[in-house]
Amino acid sequence: MWESFGFEFINFYFIPGLVLGCIYALGAIGITLTFGILRFANFSHGEIMMTSSYLTWEFIMIFTSLGILAHPLIGAIPASICAILLALFVDRFFYKPFRNAPTIMIVIASFGMMLIIRSMVQVIWGPNQLTFVKGIAKPNAYIRDLTASFDFMLLIPNKHFSILIGTVLIMLLFNYLLSSTKIGKGMRAVSDNPDLAKVSGIDVENIIKATWIVGGFCAAAAGVFLAMDTQFIESTMGFRMLLPMFAAAILGGIGRPFGAVAGGLIIGLAEELSAYPWFGDGPVISPGYKSGVAFSIMVLMLIIKPSGLFKGKVF
């Protein structure tokens, strides 16, 4: 069983799907939070993600030139701070003026920000792909030998291992924030009922700031993880991620952060598993159409149940 089916399926489809799902999940958290709290679809979210992977690359370069060999996760720390500042800056100057305007204004503004941020990155770092991590990722030898001794050999490269562990840690932190801190409860309250929040004396502007900080941090993590996974960065990577992240947020139910996580995992797995030869020899869906899977799931969800799997909001 393991030899004929499981080995290939788990190592070459399921684990990559899970890794991709983690990246989507982290990205979708920010989308669902802004959608829930500020009531708009933020089109520039993918660009924050992309920018933070470029910033990480830049910090690794700086560290290396100082003679320090830096892991991407080290470079990600200052990069995520910059990403958060960028998110706050964009909100202050481009979204805040529209707080009391029809939401569509802020959607258009975020659509514009998408282009502005991307152009900025292209001006600074150029339009070409950059190598993020060199070399071929080898499976972690310890896990391989350990699992092989139990007859289910797992081939997990270190990069995937870091992404999985990192995502779990961020989720735990995020869960703590939402359930046990005042600002987190406030975020849930504003997402639940913004009008009531205002007449309850909750400082909504502070909550909005917190939302950008959390969303920006998760986007930065997603961007760096994606760069670690694919080992290169390019200026269109944020836009490519946008649709699956929206799909994840809608699938999980708008305003439901853990729904978005579930949605992200489902979309990631679905994309990878769509290439598995379920029937016959070839992949079920031609790899060229892999990025259409997320969209199909999203449209299906919008038709069947627009509120998502976890009873989110429909505007």
């Binding site: 409860k185 849930r188 309250a189 929040a197 309850s200």
Partner: peptide
């Protein structure tokens, strides 16, 4: 949590 939200300040 609802009560806590009422006591924001």
């Amino acid at each position: 949590e609802n009560l806590e939200m009422g006591a924001w300040t």
